[in-house]
Amino acid sequence: MKKKLIRVLSVLMIGGLLSVTNASKASAASTFGTIVRAAQAMSTIQIEKNHIAERINIKTQQQIPVVVQKPALTVFGVYSYIEHGKVHNDTNETVHRSNLPLTILTYQEGYGNITGVSIDGVALGSALLTKVQINDGDDIDKVCAQAIFLDESLIKNLSDGSHSVIVKCTDTRGITLTDGFTFNLVN
């Protein structure tokens, strides 16, 4: 577009120069030179704008984080519960009040976080959690264990007898898997 404009102006200016006096020719040539320099300056400015736009685009592209989708939670379960070093792998085993705290060990395949623990249907307000790698080299987002530590204050007011524990694990897609166990609390 700019090149066409310059050509048209050139033709008009040259045609006009042929039909005017020498003084007018000098004035027209000066004007024509000014127009050419202005067009060149506009072209240089446009090139610089394009370079700036490219640099901004490159910076913008570099700042966009790559989002890696975590693997969906496909398997979740309570593996065991532990009282003061004694491991329980079966449901309805006896837990001694004197051997508290109680630790719940879960196993999962896929990415997820513990989102709830309840005892006898009552959600616990808080519990200490940790996610651990099962084998060296395993991606913790693909397979891992989570340990939930229930200190004495969380279960000291429970009566002797059978109690049900439910644990929920939720992934980033909103998939929630649950598992649980019962234990028999005694003094």
Rank of each mutant, 00 (worst) to 15 (best):
L12G: 10
R173N: 10
I14D: 01
G85Y: 13
V87H: 02
A147V: 05
T170F: 09
I119Y: 10
R55Q: 04
A39W: 04
H163K: 03
Y81T: 02
E93K: 15
N157I: 01
N184L: 10
D179G: 13
G110I: 01
F32D: 01
R37C: 08
D171S: 10
Q146K: 06
R55I: 04
D171M: 10
Q133M: 11
R7C: 02
G180R: 01
I82M: 09
L150H: 10
Y79S: 14
R55C: 09
G16P: 00
T21Y: 15
G174T: 13
G116V: 06
I140Q: 06
L73R: 14
F76S: 03
M13R: 02
F181H: 07
Q62M: 15
H96F: 12
V66R: 14
L18P: 01
I148N: 14
E109R: 11
G180V: 02
S30G: 07
L158Y: 15
P101F: 00
G77V: 05
D139R: 15
P71V: 03
V122M: 11
R7T: 03
L158Q: 09
N135S: 06
Q62C: 05
G125E: 07
N22L: 13
D138V: 14
A145Q: 14
T130C: 11
R173A: 14
K4H: 03
I140T: 08
N184R: 12
L129T: 01
A38G: 10
T103W: 02
Q40A: 04
S19W: 07
A147L: 11
P101E: 09
A39G: 05
G77N: 15
V95S: 04
S153F: 05
I155N: 01
V186C: 04
F181M: 07
S43M: 04
S118M: 05
E109H: 10
K4I: 03
L12Y: 11
G125P: 06
A123G: 01
L105S: 14
V75E: 12
A145I: 05
S126E: 05
G16R: 02
V8A: 03
N92C: 00
K142I: 03
V132S: 13
S159M: 02
Q40E: 11
V165M: 10
N99D: 08
D139V: 07
T91A: 08
A41H: 11
S98N: 10
T74W: 05
N99A: 10
V36M: 08
Y107L: 13
M1E: 10
I114C: 08
F181K: 01
N92V: 00
N22I: 15
S30I: 02
N22W: 15
G110Q: 06
S80L: 00
A28N: 09
K2D: 09
K168Q: 05
D139L: 15
S80R: 02
T182E: 14
T91F: 12
N57D: 11
A38V: 13
K4N: 06
H96D: 07
I58H: 10
I6L: 14
A145Y: 02
T172E: 12
A72H: 11
V68S: 12
A29Q: 05
S126N: 11
G137H: 05
L102F: 00
T178S: 14
I148W: 01
G112M: 06
Q69K: 15
I166E: 08
V68I: 06
I104R: 04
